[in-house]
Design a protein around this nucleic acid. Structure first.
Length: 579
RNA sequence: GCGCUGAUGGUCUAGUGGCAUGACUGGGGCCUUCCAAGCCCUAAACCCGGGUUCAAAUCCCGGUCGGCGCACCA
């Protein structure tokens, strides 16, 4: 069994991850989170919220998981989130049709299926595998289709990312933040992609959880006020250049900015924030790197893009977070499709005085003359130069109709106008997290088998060394023996800890050693044991999962001691008297 | 989607035409004063559908799911 199998086996057995619909034979690409898995996931998400929502102030919103067609036409997912496939009629092998012709034309990915078919025929391209004849190209779109309403209804799609929900609410968000850049919104929720072939367990799912932030920034102001927080942090960077050499470079955030390895400070801040988050949920620092997208893999509209990658035992480096500067691409696309300007008005520090040629049609006279067309005629007049306006009869053409305007109802001046600001289409910085992958990685990095002394011999112990903050059970309450006089006070202590808001597991089945091992396996950081001394002096033992050491502490205030231990406000050594 | 390969209690596993093997785990009990101890009891499985056969977990076909390779991965 490799590490992946060990982790998945434990995850299944202990209630972290289950294959969905197992009762009916299952379905590829779907996983259920069991009791411990759901809790672990929620705790990871909660840390994410603390960082992005509470600390950064990017408020969380919630938008439908089903989207209407317009949204995905604008985003490019209807046209672009699909690949032209082409199957061999002989051996059945499927190929990317555009890849088959990319040696022949330069922009193969822009071709229609008909054009691809024509090129394949004209150039006598056969199956690369067996040389057989190729069938016609067809689109395989990775979005799940659905219909909204009864009958044929209206075409809808399950969202392939949560991001669009934030872009389409841009105006509302801008108003909420009182039109001050930068501002951001976040969303944690399910997204859907109809993967051709989901594999690798929870690594590639058809329904998965994303945590995304869309941060709207001024296109020319990409510094970050809090960069000082991270400047001295060392990152494992695998830049475009480093990838040519095949070496991961370690450098501080400051150095990466100064050497222009990361495009700008704002992006660097968010890479560092991601680094901070991943280590906090328990990703090993030496198995974490940031890989820069190479020019040819980066979306054409992005300035710079870095993936956080985590080293796993079976799959190698896997992408868990993408952090991109998507420029104004998304807002421009939605503005174009919707016909609504998506901008913020940015005021200048000082209003600018601008020399301007101003045409002033006398609307009181224009109105009676041109009736309903007066406004459009007036607009057309405003585009004219002073030379044209000096003519006795001014001619303009509006909607194919010619209008003659007497010059005496038009005046113009050269004016100095005060311009207080300008309309800006913000750039979007997008950190996009794959929560399911991160959850798997925290389990794999927490997983450890070690040999421990037992009965004069050595035996194997499996322990999940979760960070206390993510552990789905924070403290186990264990009566030493299965006896009423120990079980009753144990249950009372459990209740006390629950009232303090801790995740408590009470367990009195079978031998104490076995119960310790059970809790080691699910990563419970602390165990409280109630023994006969408890009845004497009202004290209990607290056991530390990682060292298996114990201290003795009074029952009074035990809930605060455990709380402080779990939230890192106290060291284990200070929790009681060492045994 | 294609090819190869596999699927037996919760987990791991033996069996390969004729009563389904064992271990661990789980539950109940006895015992037990701190790291999967012992004893007793107990629960629990042949992926689904079709075919061949007196008889199929076993052989054949199809499907589902897993793994690996190819392809795919905005």
């Amino acid at each position: 069994m490799d590490r992946y199998e060990q982790v998945i086996e434990l995850a299944k057995r202990r209630g972290f991850l289950w294959n969905s619909f197992e009762l009916y034979g299952g379905a590829a690409g779907f996983y259920d989170y069991g009791p411990l898995g759901s809790t672990l996931k929620r705790r990871i998400e909660q840390i994410w919220r603390e960082l992005y929502v509470i600390h950064e102030g990017f408020m969380e919103i919630e938008t439908p998981t089903i989207g209407i067609e317009d949204v995905f036409v604008a985003s490019g997912h209807v046209g672009g989130f699909s690949d032209p496939l082409c199957e061999c009629k002989e051996c059945g092998e499927a190929f990317r049709a555009d890849h088959l012709v990319d040696k022949i034309v330069e922009i193969a990915d822009a071709l229609s299926n008909e054009e691809l078919d024509r090129l394949i025929k004209e150039n006598n391209i056969g199956c690369p595998e067996c040389g057989g004849e190729l069938g016609e190209a067809y689109e395989f779109n990775l979005m799940f289709k659905t219909s909204i309403g009864p009958g044929t209804g209206r075409q809808g799609y399950m969202r392939p990312e949560t991001a669009q929900g934030m872009f389409v609410n841009f105006q509302r968000l801008s108003r909420y933040y009182r039109e001050k850049l930068p501002f951001g919104a976040t969303q944690i929720g399910k997204s859907y992609r109809n993967e051709i072939s989901p594999r690798q367990g929870v690594i590639r799912l058809r329904e998965f959880t994303q945590a995304e932030a869309e941060i709207f920034t001024h296109p020319e102001e990409k510094t970050h006020p809090n960069i000082g927080r991270f400047e001295d942090v060392t990152l494992n960077l695998y830049s475009d250049e480093a990838q040519q050499k095949g070496v991961i470079e370690q450098m501080t955030v400051r150095e990466a900015i100064d050497r222009k390895i990361i495009a700008h400070e704002f992006l660097a801040y968010h890479i560092a924030l991601t680094n901070n988050f991943l280590q906090r949920v328990g990703i090993a620092a030496d198995k974490l790197r940031f890989r820069q997208h190479q020019k040819d893999e980066m979306a054409h509209y992005a300035i710079d893009c870095w993936d956080a990658e985590i080293l796993t035992d079976r799959f190698g480096w896997i992408e868990v977070v993408g952090i991109a500067d998507r420029t104004d691409y998304d807002l421009m696309a939605h503005a174009k499709t919707s016909g609504t300007e998506l901008v913020v008005h940015v005021e200048y520090d000082e209003p600018k005085m601008i020399e301007q040629f101003v045409v002033k049609p006398n609307m009181a006279k224009m109105g009676p003359l041109f009736k309903g067309k007066a406004k459009t005629v007036a607009d057309a007049l405003k585009e004219l130069s002073s030379d044209e306006l000096d003519k006795e009869e001014i001619k303009v053409t509006v909607d194919g109709e010619d209008f003659t305007v007497p010059s005496d109802i038009i005046s113009y001046t050269q004016e100095t106008v005060k311009v207080s600001g300008e309309k800006i289409v913000p750039h979007v910085i997008e950190p996009s997290y794959g929560i399911d992958r991160i959850l798997y990685c925290t389990m794999e990095h927490a997983f450890e088998e070690e040999m421990v002394a037992a009965e004069g011999e050595e035996e194997e112990r499996i322990v999940l060394r979760f960070q206390n903050e993510v552990a789905p059970v924070q403290v186990a309450i264990l009566p030493l023996l299965t006896r009423e006089e120990l079980m009753d006070p144990a249950k009372q202590i459990a209740e006390k800890l629950r009232n303090r808001g801790l995740l408590v597991a009470y367990d009195d089945s079978r031998a104490i050693g076995r119960r310790y091992r059970r809790n080691d396996e699910i990563g419970t950081p602390y165990s409280i044991t109630i023994d006969y001394d408890t009845l004497e002096d009202n004290s209990v033992t607290i056991r530390d999962r990682d060292t298996m050491e114990q201290v003795r502490a009074p029952v009074d205030g035990i809930e605060d001691v455990i709380y402080d231990l779990v939230y890192g406000k106290r060291d284990f050594e200070t929790a009681g008297v060492k045994l």
